[in-house]
Design a protein around this nucleic acid. Sequence first.
DNA 1: GATGAATGAGCCTTCATTCAT
DNA 2: GATGAATGAAGGCTCATTCAT
Lengths: 184, 184, 184, 184
Amino acid sequence: MIEEAARLFSSKRFDEVLMDDIAQQAGVGKGTIYTYFADKEELYFAVVFEGISQLNEKLQQKVNGQRDPEKKLRRMVHHIVSFFNQNRFFFRLMSIEDGKSEGGKGENRKRWLEERRSQLEAIEGVLNDGVDEGVFAVGNARLEAAILRDMVRSAMIHSDGDISGDEMTDTIMRIFLRGVRKES
Amino acid sequence: MIEEAARLFSSKRFDEVLMDDIAQQAGVGKGTIYTYFADKEELYFAVVFEGISQLNEKLQQKVNGQRDPEKKLRRMVHHIVSFFNQNRFFFRLMSIEDGKSEGGKGENRKRWLEERRSQLEAIEGVLNDGVDEGVFAVGNARLEAAILRDMVRSAMIHSDGDISGDEMTDTIMRIFLRGVRKES
Amino acid sequence: MIEEAARLFSSKRFDEVLMDDIAQQAGVGKGTIYTYFADKEELYFAVVFEGISQLNEKLQQKVNGQRDPEKKLRRMVHHIVSFFNQNRFFFRLMSIEDGKSEGGKGENRKRWLEERRSQLEAIEGVLNDGVDEGVFAVGNARLEAAILRDMVRSAMIHSDGDISGDEMTDTIMRIFLRGVRKES
Amino acid sequence: MIEEAARLFSSKRFDEVLMDDIAQQAGVGKGTIYTYFADKEELYFAVVFEGISQLNEKLQQKVNGQRDPEKKLRRMVHHIVSFFNQNRFFFRLMSIEDGKSEGGKGENRKRWLEERRSQLEAIEGVLNDGVDEGVFAVGNARLEAAILRDMVRSAMIHSDGDISGDEMTDTIMRIFLRGVRKES
DNA sequence: GATGAATGAGCCTTCATTCAT
DNA sequence: GATGAATGAAGGCTCATTCAT
């Protein structure tokens, strides 16, 4: 149900997605949705958080069990690319939420910001590790973490499926690593 | 009228923006909007295209009157940053449209893709110039142009006004330039 | 202006006729209509009354200057047919008004009933003359006058222009005259 | 629901009848109407066709089980009078539709013309039977059928409830029968 | 007096939500 | 718990009417 909702929400505007459509696609009665979600908005955010949580969890795992900051970074980027490749709709949903400024029911907005922070902190941590080890030189770690992550978004949007996940990862890493590597 | 609509559309969901609100904010009667736009959707896209056209036009100007590819690139990035800083709503609207996949009345979708292509080609051109001059080394110029442009988006989102336009430009250029500079 | 309005009101529903259309057809500015008529409804009734008054006036003339009741009747029917043939729209408008029951602003409704009464009285008078002269035998003169007049409507609707005014008159008179002629 | 809509549509102009009123009169929610009819227009025509179909069906029955053309005709007229007496609104709706010329979505217009034709053919058939049996003499059977049917309309309009259905039938038959009877 | 751009009251229609089955 | 027919609040849109030019 969440999956079908995700598919729809990521390809159409919120108001263009009808509860009827979701129910039909998910193969359940319309009323059934309301057994699990208070309203359309709640379903929407369930979809959004389902996606980002899952990604964040996996991302955390990649950090562990690897020493070299560059390799860690590459594994993380590779994972983000893979995840988005398999869940193109989630990636679009996240883009949308990321673009928002203040709006939304504070509750959800807050949760979203937390998830995003947690995601960026994972990347930021690796960058800082690299700095500590004397291999990276970053100005604003948080900002650069965000830039790295969004490079994936950018690559996804502009690849239209023409470019393999590996090629994307390579391109992103080439640009980014040289950008943050400490000049010797 | 378009300006007020842009402000509203960029801070709320399409369905949360009421024609009544737009009319009120713009200080015109509701009916007046319909004298100029067939419906809410048309107004929305007028807003979107107004923004991107304006940006693209200015961007084209920056390319001329400058030799050094690095300096050209910096001027372009600086301009995008300034433009988005002055029109925060447009930048959000563009993010939204960029995220979309197929949907929408083909008409508008097509126009959007064209505007985007034109924008990226401007950047791409500079990258290719750099390659010709032997100062840049790029793999997929279009993709890397897109990445550069989206770095601005990323920086905007994650700066929340804390970071000045110049600092943003510097950070972006530092990362990107080193990423594309030909290794000597 | 009234004429164009008549043409439109008789071929479309009241709500389908736009003030814009009337203005355009009549070749005047929309505001100009309001110089002469308080609102759409007033224009509509001006149209309706213009038609029936004109018809009634002419009908009255036909009665005079003829002795024989049958000939009078024939001349009247012939005139109604001619008038409707030249003003097909008026005939439709009258049908509409005739069909109504109570509704409408009492003012107009009252005026309409008066005009209709006056019209039927003209016919009724001839019928009564015939009765006085011993050539007609009628039950309810008013009702039979109405039936005669509506025969024209009926013939108009079902002729679609295939039948000439004279043939219509002949058919109507054949049926009606034999129906009211005193049996010898 | 159709019945209440019929009552309203026959006493007011299309644009004066509000969907709210229909819903309220019918004792259903406004949205419910749209479960069964696509829009106001569709409901309107459903109402119109419901009436004429019902009448036509019954009319067909009257033709059977009777030999004498005059008696058949009288039974048909009597039935039309009764039907209209019981469904005054339908009779007004039919008048309106009959008066129209070209307009309307071809679909509905076509259907209307068919129903009307079928109705007139029933009457026409009896007239032709009479001609075959040598008791009637008609010029244009279709036209005279139409005239007969519309005599009922005429009588309805001008009776205002003062005249009984039987009296109406008698008057109509007296005029019409003598009009078509073959002169001996 | 004529005009037509601007207006906003009003209405049709949609669709999230409910609740009886 | 599941369902989907019924609901009505809400909002997009129309168009008669106004009034500054």
